[in-house]
Each structure stands twice: as C-alpha cells, then as structure tokens.
C-alpha cells in the first residue's frame, strides 16, 4: 500500500458517499444517471467475487463490502425510493452498447481463461467506460449541479491516483498489470474534458454548464 493507492481509495469512497448523501439529503436523484450506477454495481459485483474465495486483508475486505453496499443502495434509491425524481428522459445511453462488446473483449483479452479472472477483466474494462451514461446525460442537459460535479471529480481523480500508484509499484515492486493500466488510462482520459471544466468553472464558484 502506497500513498497514491490509499488516496485513490479514499477519493473513490468519498465520491460514492457524496453521491449517496446528495440523493438522500435532497430526496432527489435529478441529474444522476441510473444507468451509470447500474454499471458500477455490475463492476463491483463482478470484480469482488473474490471476497468469497480469497482473503487479502481486513482493509481490502472492508472497502469492498462498503463499495458494493453503497453501490446497491444508490441503485435502490434511484430506481425505487426516489424513483419519481429520476430523470429517465435524459438518461438514454444504451447500456448494451457497452456491456456486450466489453463482455466479448474480456473473453478475448485476459490474463487467464478462468471464470473469476474473466469476470475480473470484464469489471476492469466496464469500469473504464461506466461513467459514459452520466457524462452523456450532463452533455445532453448541458449542466450539472455543483454537488454532482464534486462527485464526478472525486470519481475521476481516483483512477488518476491509481495510475500514479501503478507507476510507483512498477519501480518499487516490479509489479504491473497491463489490463488494469490500459483500462485505467482510458478511464482517466474520459474525465479530462470534465476535469478542465471543473477546474475552470466549479472551483471558481460557478455552476458547471456547457456552452450551447
């Protein structure tokens, strides 16, 4: 465990909690893509199946359980508890356009052709693009609430910090996982445009709105 990885995990946790609290306290999931949240629930479920087979550390297990639990709680709030506030008209990204090609890719490009390994690979590839329905929704409506922007920033920052963790691990331990690195790069690049808007607008106290 190095500082980049810890900071990445904390950033990830913060993003998940910001989103949960935003929905819970405003009693509304307006502006949030339920589809991205379903994809994230699928990411955590397929990646953390090793909870049942492998014990890595107390920290590892605890974080996994929190991520999965919060992820399902978020989906439940969007599709059940606060369903009336869910903006489905603007959440029109087709999930199958991501899930099907990624399922195929994870069968073709993986470290080992074994069920758990393929599901892990699927989760890594899917995570890299799972935010697309949310970004699509923001670009469609042309704006995002400030709290939603904070959520997106923390979520994007997490993988960027993991990239630094992988550079660190390569030099410190000789460890590298090409699947995770390439997917992590793709994931971080998808956020770059948003990072730019966040820094130039939200951090200066303005609401995130896109030029018409």
């Amino acid at each position: 465990m190095n500082l980049f990885r810890l900071a990445g995990d904390v950033s990830h946790l913060l993003a998940i909690i910001i989103l949960l609290l935003k929905i819970w306290r405003t009693r509304s999931c307006a502006g949030i893509s339920g589809k991205s949240q379903i994809l994230f629930a699928l990411v955590f479920t397929t990646r953390y199946l090793d909870l049942l087979t492998t014990f890595i550390s107390f920290y590892n297990t605890t974080m996994k359980v929190i991520y999965i639990g919060c992820s399902y709680a978020t989906v439940w709030m969007i599709y059940a508890k606060f369903k009336a506030t869910y903006d489905s008209n603007h959440d029109t990204f087709r999930m199958e356009f991501l899930v099907i090609p990624i399922a195929a890719l994870s069968l073709l490009v993986n470290h080992d052709f074994a069920p758990l390994e393929i599901l892990w690979t699927f989760s890594i590839y899917l995570e890299s693009v799972a935010i697309l329905p949310q970004l699509f929704m923001v670009s469609k409506t042309g704006e995002a609430e400030t709290i939603t922007s904070h959520y997106l920033f923390a979520l994007g920052l997490y993988r960027a910090l993991y990239l630094m963790n992988w550079i660190w691990r390569f030099f410190a331990e000789g460890f590298f996982d090409l699947i995770a690195i390439v997917a992590g790069l793709v994931q971080t690049i998808l956020y770059c445009d948003f990072f730019y808007l966040y820094i130039t607008k939200v951090l200066k106290g303005k609401k995130l709105s896109l030029p018409a």
Partner: peptide, 10 residues
C-alpha cells in the same frame, strides 16, 4: 503468476 491470481487492489 501468483500476483495476478490474487488481485490485491480495489
């Protein structure tokens, strides 16, 4: 490779 069988990151 044992490291890959055991994914220790989140």
């Amino acid at each position: 490779d044992e490291d890959l069988e055991k994914h220790d990151e989140l």
